[in-house]
Design a protein around this nucleic acid. Structure first.
Ligand code: ZN
Ligand code: ZN
Ligand code: ZN
Ligand code: ZN
Lengths: 151, 151
DNA sequence: TTAAGACTGATACGCAGTCTCAATTTGATA
DNA sequence: TATCAAATTGAGACTGCGTATCAGTCTTAA
């Protein structure tokens, strides 16, 4: 955990940013929370934790660190970004349940390889990608068995 | 083209919506423009074309027709949706140039198949997906040859 | 003709995120 | 330790896409 913080501090230094106390609070809170959180989640958590940080600083910090790939932001629902730490984690993509909001992470190396093929085909230089599949998770999917019984 | 309009009209009827004159104007304009346009692009085009339609109606119409899969909306840049007609077209995904904004469409059947595999693994019922690769298009990618010469 | 219901458009509103700018903090230097 | 320029902070104003509201209009079928 301190390890992860260190990585982030290094990145910021390399870009001429300081890991100030407010910024550290934001990053530490994000690292402490497992899963995907919004900027406002972080603001609430920090306030409740007795170490409030201004909205502007939270957004700015997330913006800066996002550039490093050490944290990732995703837009699932309509226009509300969720962030997750990526320090020391492998790349993954997401399934999102449009009924309950559940987020499932998946890795499929074969897909990643095929993307290399696609970009090569168009002489495109990829920087990052977003692959999201929307639908119903197991508990939100209507059971076919029940449907059949009804008829 | 009238063919495409017909499909959209059928969908709307089936859902209890009427293809009124303002709605038809919006849809026809979208079908007429090749490529990806925003709601405001459509508003401008309609106004310049002498057949203005209110903002609300444009947004509402795009929202209604989007539900059919006959047009698709994508969010590339920050929070500005672009729409494209899908009537009679096959599914495809996108490359987006973060330098010039160019959009390249691609189809990779193998990726689509692998997605089936992924969702099955999690007993997930897919409804739609979004697969976007961001980076630099051919003309925006710095040429390695030039770089080498410099050193 | 009349009336119920769908639709339109002007505009107010919501909301995530950004910008502004005076006050504060940082950290390099004397 | 004192000093100062540069970076950062935070409160709140602001932006911009999209949605909600609602009075007035258009349809359509008695
Ligand atoms: Zn991926
Ligand atoms: Zn994730
Ligand atoms: Zn696809
Ligand atoms: Zn497309």
């Amino acid at each position: 955990m301190a390890e992860q913080l260190k990585s982030i501090e290094e990145f910021m230094k390399s870009r001429g940013f300081k890991l100030t106390r407010p910024r550290r609070r934001v990053v530490e809170k994000l690292l402490a929370v497992k899963g995907h959180v919004t900027a406002d989640d972080l603001i609430d958590l920090l306030r409740k934790g007795g170490t409030p940080v201004s909205r502007a600083t939270v957004y700015r910090t997330l913006g800066i660190v996002s550039q490093s790939g050490l944290i990732d932001g995703h837009d699932f629902q309509g226009g509300k970004k969720v962030y997750e730490p990526m320090v020391g984690r492998a790349h993954h993509d997401h399934l999102f349940c449009i009924s309950c909001g559940k987020v499932i992470e998946f890795s499929e190396e074969a897909i990643e390889r095929l993307q290399d093929l696609v970009v090569a085909r168009y002489r495109f230089t990829p920087v990052y990608h977003s692959h999201k599949i929307f639908g119903y998770c197991e508990t939100c999917t209507p059971k076919p068995a029940l449907k059949a019984r009804r008829s």
